[in-house]
Amino acid sequence: MKFKDYYSALGVERDASAAEIKQAYRKLAHKYHPDVSKDPAGEEKFKDIAEAYSTLKDSEKRAAYDQLGRHHEGENVEPPHSWQQGFAAGGATFGDVDMADILAAFAASRHGGGAGARTRPTRGEDFEVNAPITLEQIYEGGETDVRLSMPEYDEHGTLHRVPRTYRVKIPKGAEDGQRLRLSGKGGQGLDGGKHGDLYVVMKVIPHPLYRVSGNDLYIDLPLTPWEAVLGAAVQVPTLGGKVELTIPAGTAANRQFRLAKRGLPSAKGEQGNLYAVVRIEVPPAATARERELFEQLAAESKFNPRQHLI
């Protein structure tokens, strides 16, 4: 298994006191905990911090961990024989095992009073995983595959990380951050305990065209000055295909055209709208002829939008 340096994860010395370890953990938790951290990488960092703390704060686990001695981060080490008492007989290789999983199993076996003498059924751990989804998937309600690797015991009692893929139906009207609960698909229970659950968190991938506001969608609709003044027929993309929109003459900037029911479905079966918001775009460089025509227009028109500022 790969060695993880828990002391350096918390930024403490190997002979740190329990109080120093607690203080180091608290400081880091406030910085990186996903519920309070501003750092997007905080969640990953917090996992390492929490793992380190859960080992070092428990005197038995810490003593077991210290038995490994000093190693480089990521170095391959064999767990000491005393750890292996929690598992079935030898021949088991620990190459692909996560150190945290082994320590957890070791601690569980010690609390049970030694090898093979575990008593109380322990519920398996819950796991949470992100599932990126697109607006198209929310609109149509498809399926998505959730991939993760779970720590599991095989028939010999050896702990492995097993890759698993679950296909879940994305209900219509899913929102960013909403969760699905997969009962019993979490960590294995011990001693007849129930399996834990798997929580899948929907993460909506930002769309290149549409912005989301509840069940409604917004899209910028750039028009040329002459299209806004004269009116035009334009095509607007929607999640359900392209739609023809008639722009009336004299359309102002920021005007919103509502494309009814072209937004996202809600969980209750309602359908949101798509709003196309007019933006007037000016050509960056006019040709000589274009300049000439615009100057004629400037001379001809009496329109003054700054009347009220004079």
Binding site: E143, T165, L180, A267
Partner: peptide, 15 residues
């Protein structure tokens, strides 16, 4: 690897 189609409970305010 094969994907296992599973039942999932939607954690919204309806269930």
């Amino acid at each position: 690897m094969t994907a296992l189609l599973v039942e999932a409970v939607w954690l919204n305010d309806i269930a």
